[in-house]
């Protein structure tokens, strides 16, 4: 959607933030929490994965930015009837 902001910025921004929060949490997970997750450092791994998704979205936006807004008149909204 040219006239609209780009969705990749929203997904990228939110997941980067989630990634940072959850990764930091994962670095300081207590043994009890790791125990609950069956020994998997799930906060760390999911945090890094979400961070990667967020950064990839932002990278995609950077490499392939939205086309500049065209100034053509928008098409007539209503049709027959």
């Amino acid at each position: 959607m040219n006239r609209l902001f780009d969705l990749r910025a929203v997904i990228g921004g939110m997941f980067t933030l989630y990634g940072v929060i959850v990764t930091i949490l994962g670095l300081f997970d207590t043994p009890a929490e790791i125990e609950k997750a069956q020994g998997v450092r799930i906060n760390l791994w999911m945090g890094l994965a979400m961070l990667a998704l967020g950064l990839l979205m932002l990278l995609w936006l950077r490499l392939n930015p939205p086309k500049p807004v065209e100034t053509t008149e928008e098409e007539a909204p209503a049709r027959e009837d």
């Binding site: 997970d29 799930i42 906060n43 999911m46």
Partner: peptide
């Protein structure tokens, strides 16, 4: 309830 620690639980 049984498996997720805080953090991914919030997600």
């Amino acid at each position: 309830r049984d498996l997720l620690p805080n953090g991914v639980l919030g997600v």
